[in-house]
């Protein structure tokens, strides 16, 4: 069978991508609209970005969001990587089914349920809600996404490399840290990026677990959007899209470099 793009295949891909990208592209274009009316084009302008710079509430929210994203993504990466190692490497142990259920369920669980249950926990334990409760909540959900990403890479990993090291007398932990970890690093970095973007993005869980003084950008945007569409919102959305796009490209480059390094290592080993 001919491998290539038939007219039908090409149309469905083109329509699909247009559907996915056009709304975002239009949103970005309208953030540069000089007109106050979001439906009328009034020429190019960066007016709304300048406006944002003076919006202190928005700036504070952005800063809080970035801090929460950074801390929770870091926790999530450590925990998620450990969970991936458990699932891929540890073989069978008592409670493995429960463990995997706890790892895979948050991936699909409706956010309202996760948010409500975490809030009730925080109330029951008596923790003041704010920055750290959002961090804990985001860590819990995003670590499972990290696990899935790292697990895929660990499954492809050539275990004999680690075994060779251990046969030569290297202790397991050292073998893991010096051989496996550097080789799966691209996946870990990609997992961190995913956790970070998911945290930047979250509205529902943050709504439940937030407290006084911890307003994130999505919470801010949500309360503004409910009041109506404003060009400032287009501008802040465009900035968020740019941050994520830069992050994704960086992650892609890191994993590309990782692949190159692996290919080089393989060549060096065979020649």
């Amino acid at each position: 069978m001919r491998r290539g793009l038939s007219v039908f295949n090409m149309t469905s891909i083109a329509l699909g991508l247009a559907f996915l990208y056009l709304p975002i592209v239009i949103l970005v274009i309208y953030s540069f609209n000089a007109s106050r009316l979001i439906t009328v084009w009034g020429g190019w302008s960066t007016h709304w970005y300048a406006e944002l710079l003076h919006d202190e509430g928005m700036r504070d929210a952005a800063w809080a969001t970035l801090r929460i994203g950074f801390v929770s993504a870091t926790f999530a990466t450590v925990l998620g990587t450990l969970a991936a190692v458990v699932l891929v490497r540890l073989g069978r142990f008592k409670g493995r089914m429960l463990f995997s259920a706890l790892v895979y369920a948050p991936l699909v669980m409706p956010e309202v349920i996760v948010g409500l249950s975490l809030l009730l926990l925080f109330v029951a334990v008596g923790i003041d809600r704010g920055f750290w409760t959002i961090v804990i909540a985001h860590t819990t959900v995003t670590m499972c996404f990290v696990t899935v990403v790292v697990q895929a890479r660990l499954l492809d990993f050539d275990i004999t490399l680690e075994e060779a090291a251990m046969d030569l007398g290297c202790p397991p932990l050292k073998a893991f840290l010096t051989i496996t970890l550097p080789l799966i690093f691209p996946a870990i970095a990609a997992g961190w990026m995913l956790a970070f973007t998911l945290s930047l993005d979250d509205l529902v869980i943050a709504s439940f677990t937030t407290g006084p003084g911890a307003t994130t950008l999505p919470l801010r945007i949500y309360s503004e959007v409910r009041l109506g569409v404003k060009p400032e919102i287009n501008a802040i959305c465009t900035i968020m899209i740019a941050v994520v796009a830069i992050g994704v490209v960086t992650a892609a480059l890191i994993s590309k470099r990782g692949e190159l390094m692996r290919a080089r290592a393989r060549n060096a080993a065979t020649h």
Binding site: L27, L200, C237, M240
Partner: peptide
């Protein structure tokens, strides 16, 4: 196909409100 999924959910809904 994955990329738009990484740009905030709220933003994508907001784009459609526009």
């Amino acid at each position: 196909v994955v990329l738009p999924f990484l740009t905030a959910f709220l933003i994508r809904i907001y784009a459609w409100i526009n």
